[in-house]
Design a protein around this nucleic acid. Sequence first.
DNA 1: CGCCGTACGGTTTTT
DNA 2: CCGTACGGCG
Length: 736
Amino acid sequence: MNDQFFSGLNPEQQDAVSTTDGPLLVLAGPGSGKTRVITHRISYLISQLSIDSQNILAVTFTNRAANEIKERINNMIMSRDAFNLRCGTFHSFCVYILRQHGNFIGLNQNFVIYDDSDQLQVINESLKELQIDHKRFPPRSLLASISKHKSNLLSYEVLSGASKNFYDEIVSRVYESYQKTLNSNSALDFDDLLMKAVQLLQNSQEIQEYYSGRYEHLMIDEFQDTNIAQYTLMRLLGKKHENICVVGDPNQSIYSWRNADIRNIFSFQNDYPNAKVIHLSQNYRSTQNILDAASKLISTNDTNIINKLWTNNGIGESLIIDEGYSEKEEAEKIIHEIERLVKVEKYKWDQCAIMYRVNAQSRVIEEACLSNKIPYKIVGGIKFYSRKEIRDVISYLKVVANPDDDLSIGRIINVPTRGIGSTSYNKIVDFAQTNNKTIYQTISEYNSIEELQELIGLTRRAATSLNIFSNLLQQLISDSKDRTPAEIIEKIIVDVGYQTFLQQDETNGLDRLENVMELKGLAIQLKETEEITSMTEYLDRIALVSDIDGLDTNENSITLITLHQSKGLEFPVVFIAGMEEGLLPHIRSMDDPVQLEEERRLCYVGITRAEKLLYLLRAYKRYGFGQGSQTSIPSRFLTDISELNIQSLEKTNSYSITPKTVFDPNTLHEEREDTAQVLDPIEIGTKVIHKSFGEGIVLLCTESGNDFVVDVHFSSTGKKKLLMSLANLEISKKSK
DNA sequence: CGCCGTACGGTTTTT
DNA sequence: CCGTACGGCG
């Protein structure tokens, strides 16, 4: 029976699956069957050792990975039992225990989760209050510092008075104000989810006893990307049984910027001296050529933990490195090569992936897909939840779930416009603050127009509007008790008048309404598929699961994805675009050797996603952030692997592969005449055509660096200032 | 109070 | 280029 169970696993993998007593550290290279080990291990525990599946906790890095594991296990053991397995991210697990037992540490059970932009808004408000210049202390950087403290489980109380320098002092002050705002709004940010969960297990004897024995077996995937808070949580959860299996690859650690701490791997060995260590180094995914490139690249890192990759898959095709003149040509080359692979080599669209360092790169590639009619999907990057209309509706939902959320109330109090402007709003906030109440408490307590006028000092008009708003909220909140999220969204659209409000926007109103309808559609879908019926469940789900799945699964299309998100995936054909200094490695990481090594690991992750074919592309010229296009230097990562067997694409229409091209990154790029890029000033009075504004007349044209600023009067929209290199103005034939 | 205009700034990666 | 923030006017 066991023989059958282990068939298809190599001895190390078998060892990793069946070592189920005590701590286990699995150090596994890319493509070594990590997920396989985890799924087999869980199945082994359930089917061979008769462990009840609800006593197993498996932690993954993304929800996508969790779903994959669940699905595979369902297929393996075909029992409803597998359904009880708790498998998901640390964050989702924390939400789960906090919703159940958060009250033990005084947490409001209806807490809402704040996302990145909520956090920034709170920081900005804190800066105003503390009179800190947001230019000298950029909110993003303050937020990163605060987040770092939180990941290390440092509260502002602990921190206060310990500042070593002025910046630290500012951080700790902002941290305090920020945290107090979150607390009074009953809101948790992503770091709080972990921090409060740790607090819960540490501070409540009762809870600690329960949870430290609750899970007989603990499994953590992508262990190299856990932070201190997560590590602490692991220690607490595994305290009684110590059956903790962690799987990771130090060379794939790419989230230190999110406070992941690679030292967790060493801590594990220190904290569990009896831990067994298993190495998995055989690669089942890629060809030897691809692995050689990966090994060569990663061996350039000083902190590389040597883990020579090997495979029985054979040498495979050579790597292909090539250059486009511009990022546009880079994209065209990729797309044409994919077309060739599909037509000639019989690959399928969904076997091909294009990876890049920053989301912004996806746009040109997307355009190339559109113009060549190539089916594609973009993973992540879609800022669905950051659209105004979506944020508005979600703010309503958050308030319904947790009326204490002042931030969300502030967002909706005058949306749709109902006559409560900033002066009135400030009066309300001041009044609420001096009386130590939340906004909702204030407006529902003093719920007559007269009271609002007298106590808060509002005008009659504002007080009337506020009274209506207050009643509206109370109605929504009481309605939500026996209604589904979808029904509440419908109420917001119709009864609250959000639809009418959107219809005033003549240009995008319909699109925006459609987005809101999609949000409602998601609520309906989640009710059917995951039985999500309460508002908190719905909001938790939206906050925790970033990718809108179900939208593009099973679709036969190529994949556009950032290198970070590609972790854990594999594709027969992988293209990495933008192999340039400043992009990969990213300019913000180039002056710090530690960050530079992480960039190299990131590239390593990308390379090792490829099964059969790997293409590394760069552009000779690329549009910079400032203006105009700039020539770029080939990435040092190309130089790292330049001695290997490498070919390039032939510059014919079909871009077929040239055999035996010797590669030298420094001679690869060709100087070429600027063709369309030469900019000439346009004479005043010239008639021009713009893609979206239509016809117009040039009023003024002034030089600005390598570029020109053109003032145009359009018949459609009037006067506009445009940057010539970006505007794509076409000179109308009618003018002389 | 609400609308419209202009000025400005911003781009790493994400649970 | 694009979205947001803020100031002035009706």
